[in-house]
Nucleic acid binder design. Structure first.
Lengths: 212, 212
DNA sequence: TGTACATCAGTGAACGCGCGTTCACTGATGTAC
DNA sequence: TGTACATCAGTGAACGCGCGTTCACTGATGTAC
């Protein structure tokens, strides 16, 4: 096994001419590039390099750079959806569940900055891709559900308009908070502290200004 | 005048070997590129091309591509600051002034998408540039002033913490709204209508959920 | 169980492209006398 | 008012770079018989 001759371009995990798991390896490579250099620093050649494969290899798995990134973005939306659903399961009070969900949104963004920025970077993705839309809508639905429950706790049956307005407000707030945090606009306020503890300290009370 | 021989590479507005106004022409060119292709589509060579000048010419006015873009971003922050100050001058009720200011923030973003995205795209700007920080802080101060007046209308003397929290909430909301709008995430809701009318229709009521 | 062969998943060299930056240069302008 | 000359603001060719994509190819795998 270990004695098997490895081809010149080989890399840890690679054992022969066929990679065996190139599709997943390229996705992992893409995510690591995104973390280090953001969506703009991504290149297909670099992803191939990190997967230990020739520059032409990705063609067999993804139509193009945008195709690979679209896959990563779809996976990102799916994980965000999971995080939001999970957060809405915590706690008995609808209001605190909604707040937990907002915190989960921002935590996802700072935990996976590359992936998050990519998800909202349509120029880098396949245009008008149905999977992206569907994955985005699924995440939106989680937020909508939490808002509906929250509003339902006050008036018996919230109107669709009221729900939509509150979703717009909550989504804008957490999205803006996440973007500003990732762009370093809070660095002066954060000072020595860690960004995560700043979020934990400030975000819930910020969200409480909206949900009261 | 009109009969004057123009050099081969000449372009409207150019009249001789010396451009005469290259610095401003490059800034204008940069803004037009940003509008068309976003911060990622910017290149110094293209800016030089649009200004009707050789690729090496910008060196005499800006240290690098990041230097030119930093200039554009600083101007953007200055204009945003003006818009915010202006908005806070409209209306007698502090609450409606704050809401007007939020609307002005988003209107600025959709009116100058390239400039706006650039301002929050630190990877494209000179790192740790003092002018950017100062220009950003000036805009922040406008928002802070409006929030302080708004909160002051309720309790007699709002605490700094309360002001900071409200600023964070308001800034996050308008910034997120703007980013999501520019990224096309509202396109399904907008449908046939124009983005500006969607903003006018939805944003004030969204902000009212926060300011009440 | 062995063999022939189609298919799959890679290689690696080559393409043309646009980029930022450098270099020696030169035309235009402004100033000193 | 005229002239010499320094300085400024451009030119355009060249550099090396990394990119996405193409191409003819080949090693490995899996299947039919």
């Amino acid at each position: 096994m270990g004695a098997k001759r490895a081809p010149k371009g080989s890399v840890a995990g690679r054992q022969g001419y066929h990679h065996g798991n190139l599709r997943e390896a390229l996705i992992d490579a893409a995510e690591s590039i995104l973390v280090e250099h953001g969506p703009e620093g991504f290149s297909l050649r670099e992803a191939a390099r990190r997967a230990g494969v020739s520059p032409a290899a990705p063609q067999h798995h993804f139509s193009s750079a945008a195709g690979l990134l679209t896959e990563v973005a779809v996976l990102g939306f799916k994980e965000l959806t999971d995080r939001l659903r999970e957060a809405n399961g915590r706690g008995k009070i609808a209001r605190s569940r909604l707040i937990e969900q907002g915190v989960a949104y921002v935590r996802f963004a700072v935990a996976h900055p590359g992936r998050f920025q990519l998800m909202f970077h349509h120029r880098k993705l396949l245009p008008a891709d149905e999977r992206i839309h569907a994955a985005g809508r699924a995440a939106y639905s989680e937020l909508e559900a939490a808002v509906r429950e929250y509003l339902g706790a006050h008036s018996k049956r919230p109107s669709d308009g009221a729900v939509a307005a509150m979703v717009l407000a909550a989504w804008s707030m957490v999205h803006g908070f996440a973007q500003l945090a990732l762009d370093g606009k809070f660095d002066e306020m954060v000072e020595g502290k860690d960004l995560s503890s700043f979020i934990d300290a400030m975000l819930p009370s910020t969200l409480r200004l909206l949900c009261r």
